[in-house]
Amino acid sequence: MQRLSRHHSSAAEELEVIAPSKLAIENVSKNFKGASGAVLALDRVSLNVAEGEFVCLVGASGCGKTTLLNIIAGLEKPDSGTVQADGKSITGPGRERLVMFQEPALFPWLNVFGNVLFGLKLKPNLTNKDRHDVAKYYLELVGLSRFERANVHELSGGMKQRVSLARALAPNPRVLLMDEPFAALDALTREQLYGDLQRIWKARNKTIVFVTHNVREAACLGDRVIVFSPRPGRIREEFAVDLPRPRDINSVDLAVHATEITKALKSHSQPEVAIAE
């Protein structure tokens, strides 16, 4: 693993960058007005994500990582700075950047199949037969073919998140934005899903931005792990994780990486007043 320098790239490194970023976040700031006055949720955050990359954002709660995800999703607007996907400014939510939320935001009035079909129905240029086949494919991919007629409340927490994943994947977005999707699950289910997610990410060639406060999870999933610090929300450090895939969250190598990232996280997690630069 290497600790990447964020600001002082050498000329050689600079020239190496040819491909345009899938996601380009430039100097994004965002304020929230809370009960205790304005909170600077994001302070001049810049981040580039390459096509097909798996990037994890870690940080203590309140560090703005979810806010950044919502901004990339187009669900929130930054106060300043620019956010681009494929070189185009993000003006609102769209199905090329789908979000998987922490709570499974499945629709209770639809059954499992109906939920996966929801996004597909909004996609033009598909016949209904296509839509059905695609929905079936993704339910198969997350291992829930047998439950396509089930009602949402009949599923376990892990199954619900699998359906959420299938629903997010079905419209075939290029970018998948995941906001602590496995936080509420038990360890065993989570481990299974780490494997599934890595497999699906490779198979469907997605770009994934994954928010978590679990460093091990980040080290297990990410090509890169970005460390945030809270109040104001800033990017402090980033780590490239070059372990072979599929990774096992229990491996010793991974633990070594996680320890180092945790150390960095701790050193940055003391809330501070904005430093004048």
């Binding site: 999703a73 187009g74 939510p93 199905r95 979000v99 935001a105 629903r167 419209p171």
Partner: peptide
Amino acid sequence: IYRRAALTMGSKSLHIWFKV
């Protein structure tokens, strides 16, 4: 969250009202 989820899937105002 239902509205937000629908928005990211490309659902727009009227569709959200009737389908969500």
